[in-house]
Amino acid sequence: MTDTREELATKIDITDWLSLRAHLERGGVILVDPLLDLAEVGAALAADEVQKVQRWLSSSLLAKPSIEQIQTWDAEQGKIFNCLIISPYVLIQEPVNP
Rank of each mutant, 00 (worst) to 15 (best):
L36P: 00
M1D: 07
L20H: 04
Q51L: 09
L8E: 07
P98G: 10
A44C: 04
L38N: 04
D3I: 15
A9H: 03
T4L: 15
S59R: 00
L62D: 01
M1V: 11
L45I: 13
D3N: 07
C83H: 13
S66A: 14
F81T: 11
A46Y: 03
R21Y: 00
D37A: 13
Q69N: 12
K52R: 15
L84A: 07
Q71P: 00
I80V: 15
T15L: 08
K52H: 06
L57W: 05
L24I: 09
T72W: 03
L61C: 04
K11T: 08
E94A: 11
K11A: 11
A22L: 12
E76K: 07
I86M: 02
E40N: 08
V96P: 00
A22D: 10
G27R: 12
E94K: 11
L38I: 15
E94R: 11
R55H: 06
E49Q: 13
A9N: 10
A39D: 00
V50N: 06
D48E: 14
L45E: 03
Q54M: 07
I14N: 02
P65F: 04
I14Q: 05
A43K: 04
L57P: 00
R21T: 13
D16M: 09
V32N: 03
V90Q: 05
L31S: 09
A47E: 15
D33H: 14
A46N: 09
E7D: 07
D48R: 15
Q93D: 08
L45S: 02
P98F: 03
A43W: 03
Q54E: 06
L18G: 00
I92T: 05
L31V: 11
D13I: 15
L38R: 07
D33S: 14
E40R: 11
E94G: 03
L20E: 05
D13C: 09
A44T: 13
I67T: 12
A43N: 04
D48M: 09
V96Q: 08
E76Y: 02
T72I: 15
E40D: 11
S19H: 06
V32E: 03
L62C: 02
I85E: 15
L84F: 05
T10N: 02
L20V: 13
W73L: 09
P95K: 10
